[in-house]
Write a protein that binds this DNA or RNA. Structure first.
Lengths: 189, 189
DNA sequence: CAGGACTCTTGATAAATGTCAAGACTTTAT
DNA sequence: ATAAAGTCTTGACATTTATCAAGAGTCCTG
């Protein structure tokens, strides 16, 4: 598992990766079955996760018990509840595996230490923030301006891989619509 | 104008602000009347902006000509179209002043230079990214899971200041609903 | 392999929201 | 000061989407 993380970091930073072995040594491997929780609402997000294989759903549950999905995290992607992780306040989100997954976890304390000791680690963190933020802006703009059918078309055009890994229920939850509406929209395409 | 930026940076970084005067000297002042554009869809975002006074609307226009607002940026907040700024690809968003505003602008080239030469500048940039990203996540989660009335209630509870500065049309655009629906929802509260 | 849980679909109906039109009012520009 | 443009509201109606219910198929799990 650590080798995949090493390759990932090299692909982000190129060859200027002094101390990479030590950095990687702080990541602890975890194995998840399907439907295991990495984080629940109300808990503190104490770790940053790198998904080596598998997939994790990031979602909230509203007062009526409905799940809505903010994002899916697949292999070679990073995962944290940034507000809870940075401010150590209760998480608003759940993280749950939707496939058997291999994960590398680094504690908040080690993460902060590495950010200070290895400027290249901080640089990579900043790059991940930039990418995540840019993606979240796309999500806001598509979601606020489009109706359900347009959002589905947008998803098919821009994130077709999601359809190969996710159940209809998951896709509906990501689109912010009921499973029934999703079934009906599929019929229109 | 530069003094306000200086205070802002000190409030973010504390006293470890070596080189602050040089950093600030790269910011060029601009004055905007109401309804002037800082950025249009299709253009490259060549600058990062610090709003000294006034307010700017960040919005997109869809195929039907409808405007939807991603965010409002007020005094002492930062503004950029991050994807266009970093990748130098065409912007998807418009930036337009909704009040007469004073703005400090730093070019992409100077921004990159300062990030390399002044680690404290990069640190502040990272803090702004973290905050912006965390805010965008709240926006996604509230928007995807709530209906229009719930979103209005959320906005009144969490961002009451917006109602003191913005027209009904602006608020409706931020909530992702028509102006007529906004009028009717107000009647329910 | 048998039962139970879950998924997907379809129908009927209700609720939410958009669109179009019109009028009163306010702001802006000349 | 006045005309033009924009804002806010209300009504009528159409469209979109949710909710509830039921059934067929699938997948776990003991």
């Amino acid at each position: 598992m650590h080798q995949i993380l090493e390759q990932h970091i090299r692909s982000k930073l190129g060859n200027d990766t002094g101390g990479l072995e030590e950095v990687i040594s702080y990541f602890k491997p975890m194995k998840l079955k399907r439907n295991e929780y990495l984080l629940r609402e109300g808990e503190l997000c104490r770790s940053c996760y790198f998904i080596v294989s598998g997939a994790v759903q990031v979602f909230t549950i509203d007062a009526a018990g409905n799940e809505t999905t903010r994002d899916f995290i697949f292999e070679e992607q990073w995962l944290m509840e940034i507000n809870s992780f940075l401010q150590q306040v209760p998480s608003k989100e759940f993280f749950r595996s939707i496939e058997a997954s291999q994960v590398l976890a680094i504690s908040r304390e080690h993460f902060m230490e590495l950010s200070i000791r290895f400027p290249q680690f901080e640089k990579m963190y900043r790059q991940i923030l930039e990418l995540s933020y840019a993606n979240s802006i796309y999500r806001i703009n598509t979601f606020v301006s489009m109706d359900a059918l347009e959002r589905l078309r947008w998803m098919m055009d821009n994130q077709p891989k999601l359809f190969t890994r996710l159940s209809s229920k998951m896709i509906a939850s990501y689109l912010g619509i009921s499973a029934e509406t999703y079934t009906r929209l599929k019929g229109k395409l």
